[in-house]
């Protein structure tokens, strides 16, 4: 199965989760996702998703000037974002366990 197809459905949740413990800038968040194992996630997808979550009112941003490079725009979860993370997380768990059950039945059948 193509994981890029799966990623499309869960990238919002993945980005929210990557920001749960620590704020981050775009490239930073991409690295976190890849380190966590989502190696196929695309740069443009993360960039676009962050823009969209921000526009949906789930993230706040602030700019941190950097001495050696360009300034960095940090993203942070706001309360709405945390609520969305929790809600979507539940949906995901329900979905994932349904899929698990389904696959287990198929294997034993």
């Amino acid at each position: 199965m193509d994981t890029t197809q799966l990623l499309k459905g869960v990238l919002d949740l993945a980005c929210l989760a990557a920001l749960r413990d620590e704020d981050g800038y775009g490239y930073d968040i991409l690295r976190r996702l890849r380190t966590a194992g989502l190696t196929e996630v695309g740069d443009a997808s993360v960039y676009g998703t962050l823009r969209r979550l921000f526009n949906a009112g789930l993230l706040t941003t602030y700019v941190v000037p950097s001495d050696e490079g360009p300034h960095r725009k940090y993203y942070a979860l706001n309360p709405a974002g945390r609520a969305e993370l929790q809600r979507s997380g539940k949906v995901w768990h329900g979905f994932a366990s349904t899929m698990d059950d389904l696959l287990r039945e198929r294997e034993t059948a």
Partner: peptide, 14 residues
């Protein structure tokens, strides 16, 4: 650009 359009294009304010 296509990835960007896909991931950013659909929801909230866009």
């Amino acid at each position: 650009a296509a990835d960007l359009r896909m991931s950013a294009g659909f929801v909230g304010g866009f």
